[in-house]
Design a protein around this nucleic acid. Structure first.
Length: 577
RNA sequence: GCCGGUUUAGCUCAGCUGGUAGAGCGGCUGAUUUGUAAUCAGUAGGUCGUUGGUUCAAGUCCGACAACCGGCACCA
C-alpha cells in the first residue's frame, strides 16, 4: 500500500533511532519529526557522531528495514510509561507534560526501540524504501529549541519514497549550491568580505554596487509614485535616544557604541525608526497630513551573533528600505492592505510570485510592552486586514516584536531556506515614547497609529535572494553591466568603442572587452560572469554598422543595426514601474 | 553565543604515517590577430588563518583565539 511521504519519513526516523540504539546502546532519545525533504532525530550521548558514522547508521537502517519489523502502537498508563522510559529523561519530560495536559500516552514499538509517539506509522518496515534516504549532516540543536537547555546531536536525513526522487533531490541541491550568493558574488565580481577587518560587512565592488543602487532607485521611484516622503537621519546619535525608544534595554548588547572624549556614549544606529519619530515630532501635524508616508534608506549596524552571519543573507551592516506610516485608527486597515499589495506588486516585478506571509503574534516576555487589550486590538486589526482581503497567510505565534504584531514576508534561497524580507509592523510603543501627536478635526491632540514598513527589507539580503533565484541571470534593468562589446580582433576595436559610446550616450551601461584574446575565450569568460548580452563586432558588423548579439544561455545569435540595438537596449534597461 | 566541520598562491584545490611546499586557472612578458564557452610559450607569486606548545625537526601532532561553512539559538 502507498503511504503518505510524511508517514514514511516519520517511520524512518524511528528506524534510525533503532539503528542508533543498536550501535550506541547508551543513547538518550529526544525526538524525531518528519520535515521538508526528510526527517531528523535528536540524540544525547557522550559519543560524537561524525560523517564516518553515516554509512554505518545507514547500513544498520537498511538491515532493520529488511527485517520486516512491525510498528505497533498501544496506549499505556502513566505508571507503565514511566517504567518503560525510566532510562530516557527526555521521554520522561514529554510524558509528564502530555499527562499533565490530560492526553493519552501512546507508544510505538519498532524492534527493540520504543518511542513515545502519537503516530501514525507504516504497518511494517517492509513498507519503507531501503534506498531512498541518505544522511545529510549532524548538527547541534537545543533540547526543546531553547538555548538555556542542553545541546543535543541532531542527525538530518534526506528521505523520499523512491530512489529516483532522492537522486533528483540531491542533484537539485548540487545545482542550487552553484547559485549560492557568495559564489555568484565572486563569479560576477559583485562584492567580497574581509573577515579579518569587518566580519559580516560587505565590500561592494563596482558591479555589485551598481545593482545595489538600482534596487534602491527602484524602490525610491515606486515610493515617490505612491506619495511617500523621503528623509535621512543621523547615523550616530546619543545612546539616550535608544533608551527613550526602549530598544536599548532589549538590544543594547547588539549595538555598536562607544564613548567620546567627553564621556558621552554614542551609538551607531541599529535602526532608523527613532530618527523618523523625531522628524514626525518636529513641529505640528494635522489630521489633514494623514496618512503620512515617511521613508528612509537607512544604513544600520547590528552586532549580530557570530554564528548567525551568512553571506549577504545575514550581515552586520545593511541598508533597510524603511518607512513609517502615521495614520488614524480608521485608516489603519486600509494602510496595511495597501502596503501588502505594494509589496506583492514589487516582488512580482522581481519574479517572486510565491511569497509566504506570516502574521506574527505576541509572546510573553519581560520586554513586551502594551496591555493585553491593545495587543488584542492590534493583532485583530492585522488579522482583519488579511482576512477581509483574501490574503493567504500563516500564523507565527510568539514571533511578534516586543512593541507590536507584524506581518512578515518570507522568500526562499536556492537551498530552500526561508528569509524574512518585507515586513509590516504595528508599533504601539514609539508614538507613545516620543509623545507623537497630530491635531484632529476637533482641535485636540491625538496620538497617531504608526506602522513600520520595509519593502525589500534589507537590500543586502534581498539581493542575495534575488541572485540565488535568478542564478545571476538578471533581467536587463537590474543588470549592472547589461552589455559587453567584444571585437573579433584589434582591427575592430575602434568600432567596438563606437558601439559602446552609442550605448552610453543612450544611458545604457556598456564596456568593450578589448583584450587580445580569442572570441571563444572572451565569450566563455563573460558568460561565466553572467553578462546578459555579448555584442560581437567584426569585419561584417563594421561594414554594415550593425552588431551580432549573444544572450546569456542562448546559443542562437541575432544581428541587428546598431541604431536598433541601442534603441532596444534603452527600452530594456528601463525600470518596470 | 552553542554543536560539528573547515582554514595551504588572487581563485579552485593537492600535500600519506612530522624531514622547512605543489597543480590548474588567473596575473605579468612574448608570440599570435583571432567569428560565438579556455591559442601557445616563458615567468613571477605562499612567514601554510593567528598565536602558544611538543620535537633535533611542524603545513602535518597538541592547546588557545579568530574567521568561514552546515545546523541550533537569536533576528529591533
Amino acid at each position: 500500500m502507498a503511504y503518505d511521504i510524511e508517514l514514511i519519513r516519520h517511520s524512518l526516523a524511528h528506524v534510525m533511532a533503532a539503528a542508533v540504539k543498536k550501535l550506541h546502546p547508551d543513547v538518550k532519545f529526544a525526538g524525531g519529526p518528519a520535515i521538508e525533504n526528510g526527517f531528523y532525530y535528536d540524540f544525547d550521548t557522550e559519543y560524537r557522531f561524525s560523517e564516518e558514522d553515516f554509512e554505518k547508521i545507514e547500513k544498520e537502517m537498511r538491515d532493520l528495514i529488511k527485517s520486516n519489523g512491525r510498528f505497533e502502537q498501544r496506549n499505556v498508563s502513566l505508571d507503565e510509561a514511566k517504567e518503560i522510559f525510566a532510562a530516557q529523561p527526555y521521554k520522561m519530560e514529554w510524558l509528564n507534560e502530555y499527562d499533565a495536559a490530560g492526553e493519552d500516552l501512546s507508544i510505538y514499538t519498532f524492534r527493540d526501540f520504543v518511542d513515545l509517539c502519537r503516530g501514525p506509522h507504516v504497518e511494517s518496515s517492509k513498507d519503507l524504501p531501503r534506498d531512498a534516504f541518505k544522511i545529510r549532516s549532524v548538527a547541534g540543536a537545543y533540547w526543546k529549541g531553547d538555548a538555556k537547555n542542553k545541546m543535543l546531536q541532531r542527525i538530518y536525513v534526506d528521505a523520499f519514497a523512491s530512489k529516483e526522487e532522492l537522486e533528483n533531490f540531491l542533484k537539485m541541491q548540487e545545482e542550487a549550491a552553484a547559485r549560492d550568493n557568495r559564489k555568484l558574488g565572486k563569479d560576477m565580481d559583485l562584492f567580497h568580505f574581509e573577515p579579518e577587518y569587518a566580519p559580516g560587512a560587505v565590500f561592494w565592488h563596482d558591479k555589485g554596487y551598481k545593482m545595489y543602487r538600482k534596487l534602491i532607485e527602484y524602490v525610491r521611484a515606486r515610493q515617490e509614485m505612491a506619495g511617500y516622503q523621503e528623509i535621512s537621519t543621523p547615523a550616530v546619535m546619543d545612546r539616550c535616544l535608544w533608551e527613550r525608544s526602549g530598544h536599548w534595554a532589549k538590544y543594547g548588547e547588539h549595538n555598536y557604541s562607544g564613548k567620546t572624549q567627553d564621556g558621552k556614549v554614542f551609538c551607531i544606529k541599529p535602526m532608523s525608526c527613532p530618527g523618523g519619530m523625531l522628524v514626525f515630532g518636529h513641529g505640528l501635524r494635522s489630521y489633514k497630513d494623514l496618512p503620512l508616508y515617511m521613508a528612509e534608506f537607512g544604513k544600520v549596524h547590528r552586532y549580530e551573533a557570530a554564528g548567525g552571519l551568512s553571506g549577504l543573507m545575514r550581515v552586520r551592516e545593511f541598508t533597510q528600505d524603511d518607512a513609517h506610516i502615521f495614520c488614524t485608527e480608521e485608516q489603519l486597515e486600509e494602510e496595511v492592505v495597501k502596503i501588502l499589495r505594494f509589496i506583492k506588486d514589487i516582488y512580482g516585478k522581481f519574479g517572486f510570485d510565491k511569497i509566504t506571509m506570516k502574521l506574527a503574534t505576541r509572546k510573553e516576555s519581560e520586554f513586551r510592552i502594551g496591555s493585553d487589550e491593545i495587543w488584542d486590538k492590534a493583532e485583530g486589526a492585522l488579522k482583519h486586514a488579511l482576512d477581509a482581503n483574501g490574503i493567504e497567510y500563516e500564523i507565527a505565534e510568539g514571533d511578534a516584536a516586543f512593541y507590536g504584531p507584524k506581518i512578515d514576508n518570507y522568500l526562499r534561497d536556492s537551498m530552500g531556506r526561508v528569509w524574512q524580507c518585507g515586513t509590516v509592523q504595528l508599533d504601539m510603543n514609539l508614538p507613545e515614547r516620543f509623545d507623537l501627536s497630530y491635531v484632529g478635526e476637533d482641535g485636540e491632540k491625538h496620538r497617531p497609529i504608526m506602522l513600520h514598513r520595509a519593502m525589500l527589507g534589507s537590500i543586502e539580503r534581498f539581493m542575495g535572494v534575488l541572485l540565488e533565484s535568478t542564478g545571476g541571470n538578471l533581467p536587463l534593468w537590474l543588470s549592472p553591466e547589461p552589455v559587453v562589446v567584444t571585437p573579433i580582433s584589434q582591427k575592430h576595436a575602434e568600432y567596438a568603442m563606437e558601439v559602446v559610446g552609442a550605448l552610453r550616450a543612450a544611458g545604457v551601461n556598456a564596456r568593450a572587452d578589448l583584450r587580445d584574446e580569442k572570441v571563444n575565450y572572451k565569450i566563455r569568460e563573460l558568460s561565466l560572469a553572467k553578462t546578459p548580452i555579448i555584442a560581437v563586432v567584426g569585419e561584417k558588423e563594421m561594414a554594415e554598422k550593425n552588431v551580432t548579439l549573444r544572450r546569456l544561455g542562448v546559443e542562437q545569435q541575432e544581428s541587428m543595426p546598431l541604431a536598433d540595438f541601442v534603441e532596444m537596449m534603452q527600452n530594456d534597461v528601463k525600470m518596470p514601474l
